[in-house]
Simulated assay, not measured.
Amino acid sequence: MTEEGRRRGRDESEEERADRMWVELIQEVRVAQTGVQILFGFLLTVVFQQKYARLDPADQAIYIATVVLGACATGALIGPVFLHRLVSGRRVKPQAVRLASRMTFVGLLLLLLTMASCLLLILRVATHDGYVPYLVAAVVVWYLICWYGLPLWARRRHPAPPDD
Rank of each mutant, 00 (worst) to 15 (best):
T2N: 14
E3C: 04
E4A: 15
G5N: 09
G5Q: 14
R6W: 10
R7T: 07
R7P: 00
G9Q: 05
R10T: 09
E12A: 14
E12H: 01
S13K: 07
S13D: 06
E15G: 01
E15P: 00
D19A: 10
W22Q: 12
W22K: 11
E24C: 03
L25C: 08
L25T: 08
I26Q: 12
I26H: 00
Q27S: 02
Q27M: 09
E28V: 13
V29E: 04
R30W: 03
R30P: 00
A32V: 15
G35D: 05
G35T: 06
G35F: 08
V36A: 10
L39C: 09
L39F: 03
F40C: 09
G41K: 07
L43I: 09
L44Q: 11
T45N: 08
F48V: 11
F48G: 10
Q49Y: 04
Q49S: 14
Q50K: 15
Q50V: 07
K51A: 14
K51N: 13
A53P: 01
R54N: 14
R54S: 15
L55P: 02
L55A: 11
D56C: 10
P57R: 12
P57I: 10
A58S: 12
D59G: 09
A61G: 00
A61R: 14
A61L: 15
A61M: 13
A61C: 00
I62S: 03
I62H: 06
Y63F: 14
I64K: 11
V67S: 08
V68K: 08
L69Y: 03
G70P: 02
G70H: 08
A71D: 02
G75S: 07
G75K: 09
L77S: 09
I78D: 02
I78E: 03
G79R: 04
P80A: 12
F82E: 02
F82K: 05
L83D: 03
L83K: 04
R85K: 15
V87F: 13
S88F: 14
G89I: 12
R90Q: 15
R91F: 07
R91M: 12
K93A: 08
Q95F: 05
Q95N: 08
A96R: 10
V97K: 08
R98G: 03
R98S: 14
A100V: 13
S101F: 04
T104H: 05
F105G: 03
V106G: 00
V106T: 11
V106F: 09
L109D: 02
L109C: 15
L110C: 07
L111N: 02
T114M: 06
A116F: 04
A116V: 11
L119P: 00
L121W: 06
L123I: 04
V125W: 02
A126P: 00
A126V: 10
A126I: 04
A126G: 02
A126S: 09
T127F: 06
H128S: 11
G130A: 13
G130Y: 01
Y131K: 03
P133E: 03
Y134S: 11
Y134P: 01
L135R: 02
L135K: 01
V136G: 04
V140M: 13
V141G: 07
L144F: 04
I145L: 15
Y148A: 12
G149R: 05
L150P: 00
P151L: 11
P151R: 08
W153C: 07
W153K: 09
A154G: 00
A154E: 05
R155A: 08
R156Y: 07
R157A: 12
R157N: 04
P159I: 09
P161G: 08
D163C: 01
D163L: 13
D164K: 01
D164E: 11
